[in-house]
Simulated scan of single mutants.
Amino acid sequence: MSTGETMRAAPPRRSGRPLVFGLTIIAVLALLFGVPWWTLVGADARWPALVVIAGTILFAGALVAFPALMYMGHGRRHRDWAARAGDTILGVIWVMFAWAVLGNVLRLALAVAGVADPGRSRIVAAATAAVSLLLVLWGYAEAMRVPRIKRVDVTIPRLGAGLDGVRVVLLTDTHYGPINRARWSAGVVAAVNDLDADIVCHTGDIADGTVAERREQAAPLGDVRARLARTYVTGNHEYFGEAEGWLDHMRELGWEPLHNRHIVVERGGSRLVVAGVDDATAASSGRPGHHADHAAALADADPGLPVLLLAHQPKQIGAAVEHGVDLQISGHTHGGQIWPFHFLVRLDQPVVHGLSRHGGRTQLYTSRGTGFWGPPLRVFAPSEITVLTLRSA
């Protein structure tokens, strides 16, 4: 190279990830809104032109409004009215999408049976619309009701006789949020207090928003009664807002925040370690001192005592097994919340709901959740207040 030539640095390579992500979102939204539109409006049902135009405008308007509403509602602006509208659209269109897919299976069956269009498409459209409407109305009622009580016996071989029959009440995923559910919260607390609990646990996702925004809805938690302890750990949604603020507020309400720490409860001469770890997403939140640390949570605990561990996500069970935990209690999955979303949840979590065993000692109970996130719907995934009765061998 001659001295007169200049060397130029190669331009930085641009990542194609934002483009791929954007195209993926567009494709998902096109399917989510497009399949119901085609099933109800666009197929060969030969509806009057006015019906086709009105239906197309409705779906197109919802498709355009949805991203903006979600951004305003769940982004930095945090507009509750936008969140309510966007979440409702999401829930309704998901139900319609799922049943439109099944409706098109019905279309094939009708075709095999010799039913021709436009009758075939009209039957499919009517069935899809009717089932979707019924499930949306029923799902809303299920989401807004005080959860049913679910009772589960869990045998813990290392549990001392004095703690046999101890009642642990599990709340999780209350998600106090854009819809003011202060009365619902009071109803949940009343139901918990009727259970005469020894220990009450909240395994995170307490709210979507700050303490200042959700204080009224969380206030009834201060009235929860428990003989031995009231304990709380953070969920992933705390790290979208102010995790430290919720830890402090729960302490003010009289709860024990188990921020990678434990307490020991005793009854009848027998003792139980009740430990808690931060959510699995805490480490990536950028908040100093927040990460799931099982070693710190169990530091100085008597290794001969049984351990009840609060951890928000079921997939934290691997570390619980490594540290000899007897029972982990979790939430996060909502049981899928709106069928058939549980199939997608199962791709990320080892369990969707219920009691399961992991390794030689450790058991995991995963709750469907006490509240709901986003869409105010629960379809084939009922909420629960769980009573875990611990039994010695």
Rank of each mutant, 00 (worst) to 15 (best):
F343Q: 10
K315H: 15
V20F: 09
G269H: 08
V41I: 15
L159E: 09
H358N: 01
A83N: 07
V200S: 02
A60Y: 07
I89P: 03
G331D: 00
K315M: 14
A191D: 00
L134M: 06
P67K: 14
A82R: 10
V64W: 13
P36L: 06
P157G: 07
R230M: 04
P375N: 10
R230D: 00
L108F: 13
G34H: 06
D87W: 04
A9L: 15
A280I: 13
P257D: 05
W138E: 12
A219C: 05
T370K: 00
A218V: 09
P178A: 15
A82Y: 05
N104P: 07
T389L: 03
T203P: 10
A9M: 15
L137W: 08
L327N: 02
L388I: 08
G354L: 12
A191H: 01
A212M: 06
D205C: 09
G86H: 07
H342E: 15
W255A: 02
N104W: 15
I329V: 15
V146A: 06
A62K: 02
I156F: 07
D80F: 14
G209P: 09
N180G: 10
I25R: 06
R77P: 11
F380H: 11
T56K: 06
P382G: 09
L298W: 14
T3R: 14
Q337F: 06
L298Q: 07
A299Q: 11
T386N: 11
A62N: 04
T174H: 05
H259G: 03
V352A: 11
L258E: 01
I317P: 02
A297I: 08
A30W: 11
P288A: 08
H342I: 02
E242N: 14
S356R: 07
G371E: 01
R230T: 03
T39R: 01
F341Y: 13
A292P: 03
E5G: 12
G119L: 14
L135W: 11
T6V: 15
A100S: 10
L50V: 13
V188L: 01
G119Q: 08
Q349C: 11
R230Y: 03
A65V: 00
P147F: 13
D279C: 07
G55T: 04
D302K: 14
P36I: 01
H312V: 02
G371R: 03
E384S: 06
L347T: 15
A320W: 03
V273A: 01
L258V: 05
T281V: 14
M70V: 08
Q217I: 04
Q363I: 06
H262N: 02
H334V: 00
G354M: 06
A111I: 12
L19P: 00
P18W: 08
V20A: 11
Y365V: 00
D300R: 13
E213F: 13
W81N: 12
L108K: 10
E142V: 10
G119R: 14
V233Y: 02
W339T: 02
H342Y: 11
T366M: 04
L355G: 00
A191K: 14
H74E: 03
A297R: 12
H312N: 07
P375C: 11
